[in-house]
Computed example of a mutant assay.
Amino acid sequence: MTLRFGLIGLGMMGRHHARVLREIDGIELVGLCDAMGDPHGVAGDTPLFSQVEELIAHGIDAAVVAVPTIYHEPVGLALAEAGVHTLIEKPVAHDLEAATRLVQLFEANGLVAAVGHVERFNPALMSLRQRLAEGQLGDVYQIQTRRQGPFPARIADVGVVKDLGSHDIDLTAWLAQSPYETVAAHTAFRSGREHEDMISMTGRLENGIIVNHLVNWLSPFKERLTIVTGEKGALVADTITADLTFYENGTFQGEWDAITAFRGVSEGTVTRYALEKREPLKSEHEAFRDAILGTRAETVTLREGLETLRIAEAAIESAKLSTSLDVREGRA
C-alpha cells in the first residue's frame, strides 16, 4: 500500500522533509502547501498549494506539518477534522491549551498523530537507550545534556526552551523511562527578543535520576551531547556525529593511600562503538509510515509531545519564580 502524503511548510525544515519523503518506500509525496510559496525550490512537478484546505481537497492520507509553531494548532486541527494522519514538527504547539486541543481531536478521530522529536531516532541515542535497558551502566545516577549553538534566524515565535530544550526533555524521559518529578531553572534574555535564549535547568525524575540541561542560542560553536552516568561508568552520545562512547570505571587498585581512601571511581577503558548511521529524519518518517499501517508503534505520540511541552513550560515558570517546581501533578 502506498500512502499519499502532503507537506505543509517549505522553510528550512520543510525542504528536508520533502527530500526524505521522496526517498521512502510506501510513500508518495502528492502535494505541498505554503502560503509563502516555495523559497527553496523543492516543489518540482509536485502540486503546490497556498492553503491547507486545498491540499486536503487534493486527497491525502497523511501530512507533515513544518510551519512556524504558532500555526501548528490551526493547521493540525484542519487535518484532524479531515481525517488525515499527521506528523507535527516539535514543539507540538505554542502553548499547553493549543496542544491539548490537538491531542483531543486527533485521539477522538482515531488518527495516528506524532510529534517530530527526531533525536529519538539518532543512532547514538537509540543505541544508548538499548544499552541502558540491558543494564550496561547498572544503576543510572545522572543524565546531562548540552545543546548549544548560534541563534537561528528562522526561529521567531518561541524561545530556546520550547525549540531546542524540548529535545532534551523528551529524550531524557525516554532514555530513563521515567517522567520528571521536579524542575528548577534559570533563563537569560541576551538577544533583545521577548523569548529566552539561554536556560540552565536541573531536575529529578520519578525514578530518582537527577538531570541537568544546558541549552542556548548564544554559543559560537554547535554542541549536542547527552551524558549518562551510572555505577559502572558513563555513556556519552554526540548526536551531531552520531557517535557513542563508553567510559568504563577502572578496576585496578592504587598504591597511594591518600587517594585509595576515597572510595570513588577511577578511569578505565574507553570504547567508541561502531554504529550504522542512518539519517534520523528518514527513520522518523519510516516509523510514522509504519504506525499508520499498523505494523509497529515507535513514533513520538502527540500526547508525549504534550507532556514534553508541559515540562518545558514548567521550566520557564520556574525561572520566572526563581524556585523549584514539583511537576508530578497535571501529567498528560
Rank of each mutant, 00 (worst) to 15 (best):
M13G: 09
R303E: 12
T226Y: 01
N122T: 13
D34N: 12
E284M: 15
A80M: 06
M1E: 13
R15S: 06
E194Y: 07
H186C: 00
G203I: 08
R4W: 05
E28I: 03
G254P: 07
L225R: 13
V183Y: 10
I24P: 02
A99V: 00
A314D: 05
L77F: 02
D139G: 09
I143Q: 10
A43Q: 02
A98W: 04
A78C: 08
R193W: 08
T86H: 09
V211C: 11
G44I: 02
I88S: 11
F252H: 08
L87R: 03
S200N: 12
R22F: 01
T187Q: 13
L244V: 10
V265D: 01
Q148I: 11
M36I: 05
D257A: 15
T69N: 09
P280Y: 02
E89D: 14
A287G: 03
K222Q: 13
L293V: 09
T269Y: 01
L96W: 03
P220A: 09
L235W: 07
I70M: 13
V67G: 00
A173R: 12
S318H: 06
G83S: 05
V215E: 04
S178K: 02
T86S: 14
I88Q: 12
V236Y: 07
E255F: 05
T226N: 01
D170T: 09
L293H: 12
Q104A: 15
R120Y: 14
G6K: 08
V270S: 08
D170W: 04
N212W: 07
E97T: 13
P68V: 02
I199M: 15
V140A: 04
A18P: 05
D168I: 00
L79R: 06
V75L: 08
T269N: 07
T301C: 06
E276Q: 14
T251Q: 12
L7T: 00
D163N: 14
Q130G: 05
D157N: 03
I259Q: 05
K277C: 05
A124H: 07
A237V: 03
R328F: 02
K277T: 14
E23Y: 00
A35R: 13
G305N: 01
Q130V: 10
L302W: 02
V158L: 01
E255I: 04
H117M: 08
N249I: 07
D290N: 15
E73C: 12
L171S: 10
V52G: 01
V67F: 00
A98V: 06
G159F: 03
N109Q: 14
A80V: 06
G9M: 04
H285F: 15
F252W: 10
H40V: 02
A113H: 14
G135C: 09
G6N: 09
A80P: 06
G6C: 09
R278P: 01
V228M: 08
H40E: 04
Q136E: 15
P220I: 08
L164Q: 13
K277M: 04
K232V: 04
L205D: 07
I8N: 06
I210Y: 10
H16T: 11
I259H: 04
W256R: 12
M1G: 14
H40R: 02
T241A: 15
E298R: 14
A62V: 13
E231M: 01
E23S: 15
E134G: 01
S166N: 07
L111N: 04
A188L: 14
H72S: 10
T229K: 12
P74D: 11
S283L: 15
I240D: 12
A314I: 03
G110Q: 09
A274V: 13
G233W: 12
D95N: 15
